[in-house]
């Protein structure tokens, strides 16, 4: 496989509040390849979105990227560590939108109600390319057509509230692709949409990915979306990536007990009617009351007392591209400094 276009290594993003530090992202690592889709999956609050925002360095205060590296390979082959850049520097701003496009969860409120769609699209285009207003407008119409918006010549002058949710999300995708980035981060792009629209939006992302050899990071809590879209999967729990692997391995031979529980809790149309849905016992711990040792141990069916609640497991390589963070596969090291 080609070199990764984006390598995240040991990323840590903490929120410093009055009550203490929330380790929203606590050592996330994964690779992203051109033309491929990496699915990041996990329950609400596991740090998926913060991870994505950390990559773009748009984590809001009091959050801060503390450690780790985000290596972006540029078109010219050079590599830059985004964590080392100043978040408000020109270089970082050129990466935002220019190298990495970002689609947000809520198409309803992610567009300004006071500016036309065209205004926002042209702004994004002119920010990264030197073109005249007229050229930018043509390009904006072209983008709207590409994402499947009917009558783009008229739509370009409408406001976001005049469009349906599905159309708005299409506009968001057009907006994120305005400056032709090579990476697209889609943060729960279909959560706010109805099922039919969801399928259309996912299909759109896949089509554009093929056309442009786009690397896609798809953040979702929906295992069904992952199964349909992703090539590789990173499963996150409480800020940590607990398992990464190819989508087949994750679905057919999940290693981490959390991944196994997540898969069990997918509702199936084949299930016995009126049978109870499988759930993961317990709930996500309060951010300030993080369990010692492996953070999943209080809810884990394979909990090993004395092991899981004392030390944190490391990532164990189970196959060339399959890793899990669990003591079932990792012998606890005695005194690691």
């Amino acid at each position: 496989m080609a070199d990764p276009i984006l390598s995240v290594r040991g990323l840590e993003t903490f929120f410093h509040g009055d009550e203490g530090i929330v380790r929203a992202v606590d050592g996330a690592s994964f690779d992203l390849f051109p033309g491929r889709t990496l699915g990041i999956v996990g329950e609400s609050g596991c740090g998926k979105s913060v991870t994505a925002r950390s990559i773009l360095r748009i984590v809001e205060r009091p959050g801060r990227v503390e450690n780790g590296s985000v290596l972006l390979r540029r078109a010219d082959g050079s590599t830059v560590d985004l964590v080392k850049l100043d978040a408000s520097s020109r270089e970082m701003r050129e990466v935002r939108g220019g190298e990495i496009g970002y689609v947000f969860q809520e198409p309803m409120s992610s567009l300004s109600a006071y500016h036309t769609i065209g205004n926002q699209l042209m702004e994004a285009i002119r920010l990264h390319r030197t073109v005249t207003k007229a050229e930018a407008r043509d390009r904006a119409i072209e983008l709207l057509r590409m994402v499947g918006i009917p009558r783009p010549e008229q739509r370009v002058d409408s406001y976001s509230f005049e469009l349906s949710g599905g159309l708005r999300q299409r506009v968001m995708i057009a907006l994120s692709l305005a400056a032709e980035p090579r990476i697209l981060i889609a943060d729960e792009p279909t959560t706010a949409l109805d099922v039919t629209t969801q399928a259309q939006i996912l299909e759109l992302i896949r089509r554009i990915q093929e056309e442009r050899n786009l690397a896609v990071v798809l953040i979702t809590h929906d295992m069904g979306v992952i199964a349909e879209m992703a090539d590789a999967v990173a499963v996150m729990y409480l800020g940590k990536v607990v398992e990464t692997g190819p989508v087949d391995a994750i679905f057919h031979a999940p290693k981490h007990p959390y991944t196994q529980s997540l898969l069990r809790s997918i509702p199936s149309v084949l299930a016995q009617p009126l049978s109870r849905l499988a759930t993961i016992t317990g709930s996500i711990p309060h951010p300030f009351a993080r369990p010692a040792g492996c953070p999943f141990h209080p809810r884990c069916p394979s909990f090993m007392p004395g092991t899981c609640d004392t030390g944190a497991p490391g990532l164990t390589r189970l196959a060339p591209d399959h890793e899990a963070r669990c003591f079932l596969y990792d012998q606890p090291r005695e005194t690691s400094a």
């Binding site: 925002r53 773009l56 748009i58 809001e60 408000s88 701003r93 050129e94 990466v95 935002r96 939108g97 220019g98 496009g101 970002y102 947000f104 969860q105 809520e106 409120s109 992610s110 567009l111 300004s112 109600a113 702004e123 994004a124 920010l127 990264h128 968001m172 907006l175 994120s176 305005a178 400056a179």
Partner: peptide, 13 residues
């Protein structure tokens, strides 16, 4: 509001 983050993610100063 999310639209502020969106604008930021576009690379605006």
């Amino acid at each position: 509001r999310p639209y502020v983050t969106t604008a930021r993610a576009r690379g605006l100063p």
